[in-house]
Design a protein around this nucleic acid. Structure first.
Lengths: 123, 123
DNA sequence: CGGAATCCTGGACGATACTG
DNA sequence: CAGTATCGTCCAGGATTCCG
């Protein structure tokens, strides 16, 4: 399928990018790809994300219907997050983007190195 | 191809998301998909982007080797921007994301509507 | 027209500390 | 362990203005 031309004008079309925009959204979704995980596990698996930001991210994802929260009874608190069917449909997109990064990452790095002369400063 | 598991730890893997993260990057790349365009054309085509932000975006894309700037001699200024081969390789990714948005956009909207109760507030 | 300079705002992100 | 509350920093993005 190819995206229609209305792509630019139609704000709804930018939805996917807004979702993938936030730094951690895609990463968290990806970390959930093969089953529900508890916050501690997620933090360990992802690395470099603070508890607060993880919570915020999960809240965002839940709000958009991509993730579900499941509270298991007991003490201490046990909670886990998993992908919804909708969230699962986003995995191929993330996968493709990740594959692109692996395939062309070095080219981008190279371009950045060689950019200094007349191109603008690093944004 | 499926993205390796190192996905999360490897910072280079997040490259694609950093590129698609900035709100306008993907949109501008998409607007350039069928040939070079001049800034005015781009602004008209995209809609809702300020001249300043467009300039910044193009600078970013140039810096990453995704776009080239071509200055045609003459007065008044005539400049155009086009995709590099590298930038062109990103189009399928953008296309897939756009296609996803068209296919599942309404589901996300619906989820947002129904989210108010126990789910967190809109972030 | 292209784009740089300036000022301002909101939100993402991080660190820390605290409650249940 | 899960989540909230503060506080502070940084930057994308919008509006405006001015120069070549």
């Amino acid at each position: 399928m190819t995206t229609p031309d209305a792509f630019l004008a139609d704000c709804r079309a930018r939805l996917a990018f807004d979702l993938l925009s936030h730094t951690w959204n895609a990463v968290v979704l990806w970390a959930l790809r093969d089953g529900p995980r508890r916050p501690v596990e997620l933090r360990a698996r992802i690395g470099g994300i603070s508890s607060k930001v993880l919570t915020e991210t999960l809240r965002r994802l839940r709000f958009n219907g991509l993730v579900v929260r499941t509270a298991e009874p007991g003490r201490p608190s046990r909670v886990s997050y998993g992908l919804t069917p909708l969230g699962r449909t986003l995995l191929p997109v993330i996968d493709l983007a990740g594959a692109w990064a692996f395939a062309h990452g070095d080219e981008v790095m190279a371009a950045q190195e060689a950019a200094c002369p007349e191109d603008g400063p690093r944004p």
